[in-house]
Amino acid sequence: MKETDLIAPLVKTYSKMGYRAFAEVQLSSRWIDIFLVNEATNVTVAIELKLTDWKKAYKQAKVYPIAADYVYVGMPEQYVHRALDHCDYFENVGIGLLSINGKAVEVFEAQKSSILVEDVKKGIIENLNPEMEVILDDDGFLTKTFYPCGRFK
């Protein structure tokens, strides 16, 4: 399993809620794995994906609340318990947890960001482009391959 295997189920779940998904979105010197935008409500969600290393995901995700209304760490269902055992870390900064296995399920609720900088959020949204958008085919599979650091094919 690769991190990119988590993208399709995540996008499928959130697209049903009216979100468009973008992969490898730059935030200063960092890259948000998945950035979701609901154009009807202007709500944004930043998601850091990791297969097993919840600590690394947490460290990366804890800066995302300046750019997104809600922030989550997404992990495969079989490993999310590792992060849940330390949910106090996530609770302290308002980060939620998603369990991914065919769909994304919220197992720990994210809190609305109290440190969101609207200009940062607006700048990210303005810089999104169609090449970054995650599109699924009719069978629910990715239509392009994504790589770390904003590259795609």
Rank of each mutant, 00 (worst) to 15 (best):
M1K: 12
K2A: 05
E3M: 05
T4G: 00
D5H: 10
L6P: 03
I7N: 11
I7Y: 14
A8L: 03
A8H: 12
K12Y: 06
T13N: 11
K16T: 12
K16A: 15
M17F: 08
M17Y: 12
G18D: 00
G18T: 08
R20G: 00
E24R: 03
V25A: 07
V25Y: 08
Q26E: 12
L27G: 06
S28A: 10
S28Q: 09
S28I: 01
S29T: 12
F35G: 01
F35Q: 02
N38D: 15
N38W: 07
E39Y: 12
E39L: 06
E39Q: 12
A40W: 00
T41V: 10
N42G: 03
N42E: 14
N42V: 04
N42S: 14
T44H: 11
V45N: 03
A46M: 01
I47D: 14
I47S: 12
I47R: 13
E48Y: 02
L49S: 06
L49E: 12
L49T: 05
K50F: 02
T52W: 06
T52D: 14
D53C: 08
D53I: 06
D53N: 15
D53L: 02
W54V: 06
K55D: 13
K56C: 03
K56M: 13
A57P: 14
A57F: 10
Y58I: 03
Q60V: 08
Q60C: 10
Q60H: 10
A61V: 07
A61C: 10
K62H: 03
Y64A: 12
P65I: 01
A67F: 03
A68G: 09
A68K: 08
Y70E: 12
P76A: 07
Q78Y: 13
Q78R: 14
Y79M: 10
Y79Q: 13
V80K: 07
V80I: 15
V80C: 11
H81W: 13
H81N: 14
A83G: 12
A83Y: 13
L84G: 04
D88F: 05
D88V: 11
F90P: 14
F90C: 11
F90H: 11
N92H: 09
N92E: 15
I95R: 04
G96I: 04
G96P: 01
L97P: 08
L98R: 02
I100L: 01
N101M: 10
N101I: 01
K103P: 01
A104W: 04
V107I: 13
V107K: 13
F108T: 01
E109N: 08
E109D: 10
A110M: 01
A110E: 10
A110W: 02
Q111C: 08
K112T: 11
S113W: 05
S113R: 09
S114E: 15
I115P: 00
L116A: 05
L116Q: 04
L116E: 06
E118K: 11
E118S: 12
D119C: 00
K122P: 02
G123A: 11
I124S: 05
I124P: 09
L128R: 07
L128H: 08
N129T: 13
E131C: 04
V134G: 10
D137W: 04
D137F: 04
G140A: 04
F141Q: 08
T143D: 07
T143N: 06
T145S: 14
F146E: 11
P148I: 06
C149F: 15
F152S: 15
K153N: 15
K153E: 14
